[in-house]
Amino acid sequence: MIAENTQTQMRKGILEYCILSIISRGEIYASDIISELKKAQLLVVEGTLYPLLTRLKNNGLLSYIWKESTSGPPRKYYEITQEGLDVLEKLDITWRELNFAVEISLAGRKSTDIKN
């Protein structure tokens, strides 16, 4: 239970960071974001993404435009806003700091202790 909680917390923060990073590359459709995240093995199901995108959008980090699609209903294409870019910049710094911290902390352990 405790492990689950920590996992959720870790994954949640990183998920947001990754989503922002993916969208910052240019306008993108939600299911493309999902396939990227699936490739990275960060996301299991699509349903998790929509609330997150809505929240980021309502916080002003993202915006979207409707685009007609050849199959099915019009699609929402997400774009990052200036505010989103600012946040991403801060997250980059934090990530480097965290990465450094994790490296330092893990360096003390023998490589065999860490299971892959």
């Binding site: 959720t8 299991v44 199901v45 699509e46 349903g47 998790t48």
Partner: peptide, 13 residues
């Protein structure tokens, strides 16, 4: 593909 509610709860706020 979309995930069940129980799957959401893992990553939910």
């Amino acid at each position: 593909q979309m995930g069940r509610v129980s799957d959401f709860e893992m990553d939910e706020d």
